[in-house]
């Protein structure tokens, strides 16, 4: 069972999940254009090191002034994953990414995720989420589209 809470005072919607694999999470209400996450991050050296260690990437060892591009993508997905409160067992089906501008370490970024499509096929809900990351000047530095499969 799931409960969809709308906190009108804070103009925020929160999906509350009880148990796994529940069909009704209020996801039906998410239509194309719905912004599901807006977050700001400052990617510092520690975050970059943590990311590079996790992915075992040695290609950037001698270039420590810019954020690894896929680290930006991972961060942009983070907001969508957390704010949608996706259920355990959700799978990543496909990913599109465009890197537009290099991002120096310690720069603040704003990440926005919005629904592109939301359909049910068989036992899965397919949700396409458009990602956009901009720097402090508002210039887009990365865009992308994630398609995820949520178990019903």
């Amino acid at each position: 069972m799931s409960i969809y809470i709308v906190d009108r005072g804070n103009k925020r919607k929160t999906l509350v999940r009880e148990g796994q694999n529940s069909i009704d999470r209020g996801y039906d209400s998410l239509i194309a254009g719905h912004v599901v996450s807006e977050r700001s991050y400052n990617i510092d050296n520690e975050m970059v090191e943590q990311y590079l260690t996790a992915v075992q990437d040695t290609s950037l060892q001698n270039d420590d002034s810019f954020v690894p591009p896929m680290c930006i993508c991972a961060l942009s997905l983070r907001g969508a994953v957390e704010d949608l409160k996706i259920p355990g067992g959700t799978l990543h089906a496909s990913q599109e990414i465009t890197f537009i501008k290099p991002v120096p370490i310690n720069q603040s970024l704003s990440c926005r995720a919005k629904i592109s499509s939301n359909t049910i096929r068989g036992d899965w809900r397919f949700m396409a989420i458009v990602l956009s990351v901009a720097d402090m000047s508002g210039t887009e530095v990365m865009s992308g589209k994630s398609t995820i499969m949520l178990p019903k």
Binding site: V55, D57, T58, P69, L91, I97, P102
Partner: peptide, 22 residues
């Protein structure tokens, strides 16, 4: 991304695109 960086260097983070299926 690591392979693209090793093969093309900094232009990857400035102009790279990726379209993949898992």
């Amino acid at each position: 991304s690591e392979m693209m960086t090793l093969s093309f260097g900094s232009p990857w983070r400035e102009s790279g695109t990726m379209k993949i299926r898992f």
